[in-house]
Every structure is written in structure tokens, then in C-alpha cells.
């Protein structure tokens, strides 16, 4: 009797035969991919911080703020336009709406994952569809914001050489130093591309749920994995929102 091998489940977690982290290979790799993606995004965002704080800040009051290429702009004066309300000063309203859209699509994603745990195909289909709609709406908002940022305001800004600049591109910028626009395009563009690929992946998962692939497989783990990616995109936006629009 003494030689009978018994498996002590508390000690043999790393001894083989079980998934030691209680997560499948695919899920673990998604986590580590997201960790590496977090490094990419933090490198970009910290670079934004570095470049911003190596430029002079605007010293005066918010109400007297004017655009100049000499100092870093106050975000609420740059991002103050809302579609269909031309000429109305609505600081940060539009980006606030975008933030809520992304948070809500994250919520519908969790609900899709939760429905997947219950093998509820109709639930997964419904909530995945809402998530895709949320993602597409966010992308459309961002397209509008980029377009407004590129075209600029009607007055423009006079730069150091006495020329009037309208809007922003990679070489000149009416809102502040040229680097401000470059970083805006690079970081929100990189994030927007993540949202775009997230929508594409979500659509593939939605399609597979509709045709019953996961029901045949017996589990909805793929919904969970894309869910992780989608929440990560939301997580990055939380940081972009703070660094670009609030500070």
C-alpha cells in the first residue's frame, strides 16, 4: 500500500498533467502578446510625455489661450469641435462620447464572454454584434476627429515665419509644435489600427458563432480570447484619453 502512487493535487501543479495556470495555451499566449503590446504602447505614450515636457508649457490662463507653435497647447482648446455643431466651443465633449462608446463596447464584450460560458449561442451573437457596432462607431468618430484635426480652424495660426497655417500634418501644425501633431497621428493612429483589427477579429468570431462552429466545438473560448484583446484596446484608450486629452 505504501508504494501506491497518489497524486497530491496541491503539490504537483507544476509536475505535469495539468494546466498549471488553469488557462489554455491560446489564452496564455494572448496574455503574453498583450503584455508585449503594452510595452509598445507605453513606449509611445512615455515618449509623448518626454517630448511634451521638453517643450515650454503655456503659462497664462485658459480663457486667454491662443494657438502658437512656440508652446505645447492645452488639449481642451484643441479638441473642442463636435460634428454638426460648427463653430460651437464644446471642449472634450466629442472625445468624451468616444470614450463612453469604447467602454460600452467593452461591457457588451464581457456580456458576450459570459453568454459563451453558459453555451448561450443567441446571447453570444447578440452581444458580439453590439460590440462590433460599438467598435465601428468609435472608428467613424476617430475618422471625423482626424479629418477635423487635419483641416484645422477657419482662422489658422501665424507661425514664426509670418505664414498662416491651417490644420496639422507631419511637417506643420497650427495647434502647437509640429511634434504635437506627429505624436497625435502616430499614437491615436496606432490605437485606431488596433481597434480596426479588433473589429475584424470580432467579426470573424461573430461569424463563427452564427454558423455554430463553437457550439460544435463544445466551448466558446475563442470569444474569451478576443475579449481579452478588445478589453486591452479599451485599456490603452483610457491611457491615451488621459495623456492626450486631459493633461
Amino acid at each position: 500500500m505504501a508504494t501506491t502512487a497518489t497524486i497530491d493535487t496541491t503539490k504537483s501543479r507544476w509536475g505535469g498533467g495539468v494546466a498549471p495556470m488553469n488557462a489554455s495555451y491560446g489564452k496564455l499566449m494572448m496574455w503574453f502578446f498583450l503584455l508585449s503590446d503594452a510595452f509598445s504602447f507605453s513606449a509611445l505614450l512615455i515618449t509623448y510625455g518626454l517630448i511634451r515636457y521638453s517643450h515650454p508649457a503655456y503659462e497664462g490662463t485658459v480663457s486667454e489661450f491662443t494657438f502658437s507653435t512656440e508652446y505645447w497647447p492645452i488639449p481642451e482648446m484643441v479638441f473642442e469641435a463636435v460634428p454638426f455643431l460648427h463653430g460651437v466651443h464644446a471642449p472634450l465633449i466629442f472625445v468624451g462620447i468616444m470614450t463612453f462608446i469604447l467602454i460600452l463596447s467593452s461591457v457588451t464584450m464581457v456580456l458576450a464572454v459570459e453568454a459563451g460560458h453558459r453555451m448561450d449561442r443567441q446571447g453570444v451573437i447578440k452581444w458580439m454584434l453590439w460590440t462590433i457596432i460599438g467598435g465601428l462607431t468609435f472608428l467613424a468618430c476617430q475618422a471625423w476627429e482626424w479629418s477635423h484635426f487635419i483641416h484645422g480652424t477657419a482662422e489658422g495660426t501665424v507661425n514664426a515665419m509670418g505664414e498662416t497655417i491651417f490644420g496639422a500634418n507631419l511637417t506643420e501644425n497650427q495647434y502647437g509644435p509640429p511634434l504635437f501633431a506627429s505624436l497625435f497621428f502616430f499614437i491615436t493612429g496606432f490605437h485606431g489600427f488596433h481597434v480596426f483589427s479588433g473589429v475584424v477579429i470580432n467579426f470573424i468570431i461573430f461569424f463563427n458563432a452564427v454558423v455554430g462552429t463553437y457550439e460544435k466545438r463544445g466551448h466558446y473560448e475563442m470569444v474569451e480570447k478576443t475579449g481579452l484583446y478588445w478589453h486591452f484596446v479599451d485599456l490603452v484608450w483610457v491611457f491615451v484619453f488621459t495623456l492626450f486629452y486631459l493633461i
Binding site: N22, H231, F232, V238
Partner: peptide, 18 residues
């Protein structure tokens, strides 16, 4: 960030090692 990672991404309820 804590709420998104811990609750939405469910990390709070995973194994300690993960």
C-alpha cells in the same frame, strides 16, 4: 485600468502564477 484588467479581463480571478 485596475477595473478593466481585474474584472473585465478577469485577471483578478486567475491563478496567482498567471
Amino acid at each position: 485600468a485596475f477595473y478593466i484588467v481585474a474584472e473585465f479581463m478577469h485577471l483578478k480571478h486567475e491563478q496567482k502564477a498567471l
